[in-house]
Amino acid sequence: MLTPADLSTLLAATAQGDRIAFERLYVATRAKLYGVVIRILKRQDLADEVMQETYIKIWGNAGSFDPSKASPITWMVTIARNRAIDLVRKRSEASIEEEPEAMDVAADIPNPLAARELSEDLRRLMGCIGTLDTDRKQMVLLAYYNGLSREQLAAKFRKPVNTIKTWLRRSLIEIRECLGS
């Protein structure tokens, strides 16, 4: 896993047109950005489209990234989230008759068939997350599923950013140990 400093270095190299740095940046961040985008759009085809637009924007604007204003992942998540929200707003102008698939919105709780189709790894992961206390479980899900930054979590939980970092780190260690057993 790359550190924020590593990501900043990759963004700086990307700003200089370094395709290998951009590829490493993509590999390191695609899962997180995709998680944010799919959560908003709930459709793979739209999420794929937004992901492509997001990375095109990252490629073109890497030089404008300022590490004194935000962490690299926060900057990239913001681009992805804004793109996804823009698409939702644009698509909401269409009528339901023009887009019947809008009725096929994914439920928050999977139906029995969908639950059975969850991979064993995902079930194990969710079981391990379920062992965390309520606040830490919510924090992990908000950070890694919804893409909230540490600063946003600190505001939500009314705790210092360093406390949030520690809680997230300890939670991830507990999850990793649970998965290892």
Score class of each variant (00 low, 15 high):
residue 121 D to C: 04
residue 154 A to I: 09
residue 165 K to H: 10
residue 144 Y to V: 01
residue 134 T to V: 14
residue 136 R to G: 02
residue 159 K to H: 09
residue 150 R to K: 13
residue 97 E to T: 10
residue 101 E to Q: 14
residue 126 M to L: 15
residue 101 E to C: 06
residue 166 T to R: 12
residue 140 V to N: 00
residue 93 E to T: 15
residue 144 Y to R: 11
residue 144 Y to Q: 09
residue 120 E to V: 15
residue 118 L to D: 05
residue 104 D to M: 13
residue 179 L to K: 01
residue 142 L to W: 09
residue 113 L to R: 13
residue 88 V to H: 02
residue 105 V to L: 13
residue 107 A to V: 09
residue 100 P to C: 03
residue 116 R to F: 12
residue 98 E to D: 13
residue 154 A to H: 05
residue 161 V to F: 02
residue 113 L to D: 15
residue 178 C to F: 07
residue 90 K to V: 08
residue 162 N to E: 13
residue 86 D to R: 00
residue 174 E to Q: 14
residue 98 E to C: 04
residue 155 A to M: 12
residue 117 E to Q: 14
residue 136 R to S: 11
residue 133 D to W: 09
residue 110 P to L: 06
residue 136 R to F: 08
residue 117 E to K: 13
residue 83 R to S: 07
residue 137 K to S: 10
residue 84 A to R: 04
residue 178 C to E: 04
residue 117 E to H: 12
residue 135 D to Q: 14
residue 93 E to I: 11
residue 84 A to P: 02
residue 109 I to C: 04
residue 179 L to W: 00
residue 110 P to Q: 03
residue 164 I to M: 05
residue 167 W to T: 04
residue 108 D to M: 14
residue 167 W to F: 08
residue 169 R to E: 08
residue 107 A to G: 09
residue 132 L to C: 02
residue 82 N to W: 01
residue 171 S to Y: 01
residue 145 Y to A: 15
residue 153 L to W: 00
residue 117 E to V: 04
residue 112 P to L: 08
residue 173 I to P: 00
residue 87 L to R: 13
residue 122 L to A: 15
residue 136 R to D: 15
residue 95 S to I: 08
residue 138 Q to S: 14
residue 86 D to M: 06
residue 138 Q to P: 03
residue 171 S to T: 08
residue 97 E to K: 10
residue 103 M to W: 12
residue 168 L to A: 01
residue 159 K to T: 07
residue 114 A to P: 01
residue 148 L to A: 09
residue 170 R to W: 09
residue 93 E to K: 15
residue 168 L to M: 05
residue 150 R to C: 11
residue 154 A to T: 03
residue 139 M to H: 01
residue 109 I to Q: 06
residue 105 V to D: 07
residue 121 D to Q: 12
residue 125 L to W: 06
residue 100 P to M: 03
residue 129 I to V: 15
residue 127 G to A: 09
residue 117 E to I: 09
residue 146 N to P: 00
residue 107 A to N: 11
residue 89 R to C: 03
residue 149 S to L: 06
residue 100 P to K: 05
residue 112 P to K: 05
residue 166 T to M: 12
residue 129 I to F: 00
residue 139 M to E: 00
residue 116 R to G: 12
residue 178 C to R: 05
residue 167 W to R: 09
residue 109 I to G: 01
residue 106 A to R: 14
residue 101 E to G: 09
residue 116 R to N: 09
residue 155 A to D: 14
residue 156 K to L: 15
residue 110 P to D: 04
residue 132 L to T: 04
residue 140 V to Q: 02
residue 153 L to K: 03
residue 96 I to E: 11
residue 92 S to R: 12
residue 129 I to N: 01
residue 138 Q to M: 11
residue 101 E to W: 14
residue 152 Q to P: 05
residue 149 S to P: 04
residue 154 A to G: 08
residue 166 T to C: 04
residue 107 A to T: 14
residue 137 K to F: 01
residue 99 E to I: 10
residue 168 L to R: 02
residue 140 V to R: 01
residue 114 A to Q: 15
residue 125 L to D: 03
residue 168 L to N: 04
residue 177 E to S: 13
residue 83 R to M: 11
residue 119 S to R: 07
residue 86 D to F: 00
residue 117 E to T: 08
residue 162 N to I: 11
residue 135 D to A: 14
residue 113 L to A: 15
residue 146 N to K: 13
residue 175 I to Y: 02
residue 144 Y to A: 02
residue 89 R to M: 09
residue 115 A to Q: 13
residue 103 M to H: 10
residue 134 T to F: 13
